[in-house]
């Protein structure tokens, strides 16, 4: 299994210290994502979709339960270990692209390589190769503010694929895109999944996006309704 959540619970504490109120967000989540699957997590606002993705990303810690990613128990990883783990195994696509405004498209895309300590000559080659693949090579020297939403998202995808991660986590990847760009992005996700075997976990409201997935799971009020929903029989893993 590429991603496994076993009896994961998560709750937030809100309010002032000493007078906190506990708000449960996720209840007894059991989710298994196989290698090479595209899984869409759908649900209404406040259902806990983003929290679920943040748990898999390591941005927050579960209150209880176990999370395994890429066959490694990541539940108790320290912040530093999580950083190394993310760099090695995870790629991220965000709704609002999350490009650093003061850096060019090239510099944004090369960030994972810089963090990994890859030499400049190798970086140049890899970044231009991926920007080319994403169709934004000609904008390498442009700042995010000078790019359209679709172009920014392509730079962001190039960044997420820079270190060949086996898993890409996408939070509302088409949320800021027009229909045309959305269609192109979903085609790209399918292509990457097919050609490179990348496992995708997509958070979405969008039926189009959900339809791209091999399997859709629904969250409602913090409960996973159909962990084995559409495409549960899907078996890609060798």
């Amino acid at each position: 299994m590429m991603i496994e959540l076993i009896q994961v619970n998560h709750q937030f504490a809100i309010g002032k210290k000493g007078k906190e109120r506990v708000v449960p967000v996720l209840h007894h989540i059991d989710l298994h994502v196989k290698k090479g699957e595209i899984v869409a997590i759908v649900g209404r606002s406040g259902s806990g979709k983003s929290t679920l993705l943040n748990l898999i990303s390591g941005y927050i810690r579960p209150t209880s339960g176990t999370i395994r990613v890429a066959e490694q128990d990541v539940t108790g990883l320290s912040e530093g270990d999580w950083a190394n783990f993310r760099l090695a195994h995870l790629g991220f696509i965000f709704q609002s692209f999350q490009l650093i405004p003061s850096m060019t498209a090239f510099e944004n895309a090369e960030l994972p390589l810089v963090l990994k300590g890859i030499a400049l000559s190798e970086r140049k080659k890899r970044v231009m190769e991926l920007l080319e693949q994403m169709g934004v090579a000609e904008y390498a020297g442009h700042y995010p503010g000078e790019l359209s939403g679709g172009q920014q998202q392509r730079v962001s995808i190039a960044r997420s694929l820079m270190l060949n991660p086996p898993i890409v986590l996408a939070d509302e990847p088409t949320g800021s895109l027009d229909t045309d760009n959305e269609r192109q992005l979903l085609a790209l996700i399918r292509e990457l999944n097919r050609d490179l075997g990348i496992t995708f976990v997509l958070i979405t409201h969008d039926d189009q996006v959900a339809a791209t997935a091999h399997r859709t799971v629904t969250l409602k009020d913090g409960y996973l309704l159909n962990a084995y929903g559409k495409g549960a029989e899907y078996s890609y893993e060798a």
Binding site: S57, F92, L99, I100, L111, P112, L115, R159
Partner: peptide, 12 residues
């Protein structure tokens, strides 16, 4: 910027 860098794997 720090948040973005941390999100993609920058070590503290």
């Amino acid at each position: 910027d720090i948040g973005i860098m941390k999100a993609i794997g920058a070590h503290p």
